[in-house]
């Protein structure tokens, strides 16, 4: 038991100072690079075995790019990704392919992520073909087994993806992700495109599979209620940076970053008797192209004025304020490491 605990707490994935930039090209003849979109900037976090790390943020904050960067689908500007002790950035193409067996993706849109012209057997069986792990007969058996795991009847084997509803397609997508028995799955908004009654079915399935196959998840979503339901730890992203990382309970009970606070208060609660004061953020998310000094949230932050110039001039670092609770905000300057003395 003790041993198991130790394995559980060691990180399966460690991301440190990850940065992804996309070039912005000018309009001239040579389309010279005139700037870059800083999609992901200096992101560090780790995920332990068997845990779910929730990643929340609004559209354009870089959460999907971060997920893809872990899989080395983008060229990194900086930082590294350690998976199971292996630096994924240093692997050759061939080695990376093998490593990716252990890391799979579940996509947001079940309509565009499945090929309409392929049957369910082909879709779910494709990973076996790519990695040449088994023969045709065995493959069919494995596909049937996978369909059973995700709750799809066996007669769907020869049907085409287009014949299914959104929820069923998402199940097919999950079966494909599970095919090679990965250790780690990146769930990129897996239920955002689904209806309420289907959403809960798929969420339950994802959580059941985690227990059954001892999976580790990076769960990306924009809905705080969904993330709360599935995650152990949560990271809040704003304009390419993680502004707060914390255990789930801590984060919802005591959000430290003003952006997290605003996000929580903006989420509608399906209970008409709940009365609460809402923090309505001013303005929109600023463009990630422009270079800025200081805190990226300063234009929308309700504390920016009282804090004075420091927010405009100095970028706040992500520091641990309480045990396991990290935040990047100048309001907590000087409180770093406080928790260490308290105990």
């Amino acid at each position: 038991m003790q041993e198991k605990q130790a394995i559980k707490s060691s990180p399966l994935l460690e991301v440190s100072h990850l940065a992804v930039h996309f070039p912005v090209n000018g309009k001239g003849l040579f389309k010279r690079q005139v700037g870059s979109v800083r999609a992901v900037e200096d992101v560090s976090f780790s995920i332990s075995h068997g845990e779910t790390f929730g990643l929340v943020g609004e559209s354009g904050c870089g959460k999907t790019t971060l997920g893809h960067a872990i899989l080395q689908l983008h060229d990194l500007v900086g930082g590294k990704v350690l998976f199971d002790g292996q630096d994924l950035g240093k692997l050759s193409k061939k080695e990376l392919r093998t490593a990716r067996k252990d890391i799979q993706l579940i996509f947001q849109d079940p309509y565009s992520s499945l090929d309409q012209r392929m049957t369910v057997e082909q879709i779910v069986g494709e990973p076996f073909m790519i990695h040449k792990t088994c023969g045709k007969k065995e493959r069919r058996e494995k596909v049937l087994e996978l369909l059973d795991v995700v709750g799809m009847p066996s007669y769907t084997l020869d049907r085409y993806a287009s014949e299914f509803s959104g929820g069923q397609r998402q199940r097919i997508g999950i079966a494909r992700a599970l095919a090679l028995r990965p250790k780690f799955i990146i769930c990129d908004e897996p239920v955002s495109a689904l209806d309420v009654s289907i959403q809960s079915q798929v969420l339950n399935l994802i959580m059941d599979l985690q227990k059954e196959f001892n999976l580790t998840y990076l769960f990306i979503a924009h809905g705080l209620s969904v993330v709360k339901h599935v995650s152990d730890n949560i990271g809040v992203m704003y304009l390419g940076r993680l502004v707060e990382i914390s255990a789930k309970k801590q984060l919802y009970a005591n959000p430290l970053h003003p952006y997290t606070e605003a996000l929580l208060s903006a989420a509608p609660i399906p209970d008409p008797t709940v009365e609460r004061s809402r923090i309505v953020l001013r303005g929109d998310v600023p463009s990630p192209i422009k270079m800025r000094t200081g805190c990226s949230f300063k234009f929308r932050c309700k504390y920016a004025e009282e804090m004075g110039d420091i927010c405009k001039e100095k970028l706040p670092e992500l520091v641990e304020i309480m045990e396991g609770h990290h935040v990047a905000c100048h309001r907590y300057d000087g409180q770093a490491g406080n928790h260490l003395g308290k105990v």
């Binding site: 609004e58 559209s59 924009h222 809905g223 705080l224 605003a262 996000l263 208060s265 903006a266 989420a267 509608p268 809402r278 309505v280 953020l281 929109d284 998310v285």
Partner: peptide, 8 residues
């Protein structure tokens, strides 16, 4: 729309 914009 995003959550914070939805609130607005």
């Amino acid at each position: 729309l995003d959550v914070t914009i939805q609130a607005q």
